[in-house]
Design a protein around this nucleic acid. Structure first.
Lengths: 203, 203
DNA sequence: TAAATTAAAATACATAACGTATCGTTGAAA
DNA sequence: TTTCAACGATACGTTATGTATTTTAATTTA
């Protein structure tokens, strides 16, 4: 016989339907508007998207994996780190933006993905790698710029700095003891960033 | 006829079995050692405790409510805020302790309760009220003492201060991007508490 | 154009836990 | 000894899961 000749870019057989893919994404995003990730079912998505549920199971291992994909599909084009010459200004804008967004449905969905992730480590890992790590990389860039600027001390631990700024936000998002509002944005920034800024001088 | 005579402290009928209550608590705690809250089932608890599952349903509305009770039963006697004349020292000890404990099974269970709480707001509220608020109250006391000591500025926002210290811990616990270890404990303390300490001077 | 290959849709099914209902038994107070 | 609610066992209807089966559709290769 010899080697199977299959064109390089194309697998044989009926190709995956992009129409189905989009219908599934859209249905998931739509249903998440007023359904929790927990209450969302594969069957409801299939029905809303007008696809067979076997089609969903063919491409996604579980509901949560699908939710992460849909979230990214929706979120990635909308997430951009603000630009500014001043690192502190950029962080301020970013923190305000995140708090504002997380105060709504997106915040609820992020919290729910992290929640489901507690029981599905691979899902949490994929959420970190495909969403959070990008955000953290952007923040890292800004903080590094701030170190070169002199806005932050040279030896600042960037990972820790990010956790100091974003930790309280996620804490409130997930625990819900105090609302995520503008007051919080302002005082968090004043306190946390001020702490980072001065940590060398006051040692 | 007349009025039903029921002694003040006692309802009529067979009293609730304390033995059952304890068996259910113990079974829940035991099963949680190596089962996630998600995978835990009422039926498994009933079987482990050797009680009918109707007995569980008579007293608890759902699995998560039971888990919170069992967690508190286990945790409350073990949770005490360290004492020290210095507020900063007390916070340091406390943060180290929390990070150490949350690095193990207890941390996993706390994370899972918060996770389930995303889908059951009453449960999250009860966890806040019955566990977290006590911890926060203890931290508040220490920080207030620090304000009187002069360790912290007079106008420090205590709620915010607590979020700045504990936020990063819960963030790492729930998101898992970096482990909760001693290195983190040390640098978190240095950075966060230092920030709080100096925030007035550097304004 | 036919063969090969894989996707999609519909349907059926076994499974697992949920939460409820029923009913006979048991423990403690009046 | 009567009364009353808790307990335990059992059965049941429900819901969504994930898999299996089969037919039809889409696309490439020969």
């Amino acid at each position: 016989m010899g080697i199977k000749t299959i064109s390089a870019n194309r697998a044989p057989g009926r190709p995956r339907s992009q129409k189905c893919y989009q219908a599934i994404m859209n249905a998931t995003i739509k249903l998440l508007e007023d359904t929790t990730v927990r209450d969302l079912t594969i069957e409801a998505i299939a029905s809303e998207a007008k696809v067979g549920k076997t089609t969903i199971y063919r491409w996604w291992c579980c509901k949560t994996a699908l939710v992460v994909d849909a979230f990214l599909e929706y979120m990635i084009p909308r997430a951009h780190f603000p630009e500014s010459d001043s690192a502190i200004e950029a962080l301020e804008q970013q923190v305000k933006q995140v708090i504002d967004v997380y105060n709504g449905k997106i915040g609820r969905i992020v919290a729910e993905i992290i929640a489901e992730g507690q029981f599905e480590p691979e899902i949490l890992a994929s959420f970190r790698e495909r969403f959070l790590s990008g955000r953290r990389a952007a923040a890292t860039e800004v903080i590094e710029r701030g170190k070169q600027n002199g806005e932050f001390p040279d030896d600042l631990d960037v990972e820790l700095a990010i956790d100091l700024i974003y930790g309280p936000i996620y804490y409130r998002l997930l625990v819900g003891h105090i609302p995520l509002n503008e007051t919080f944005a302002n005082s968090l920034l004043k306190q946390a960033i001020n702490g980072l800024k001065r940590s060398i001088e006051t040692q």
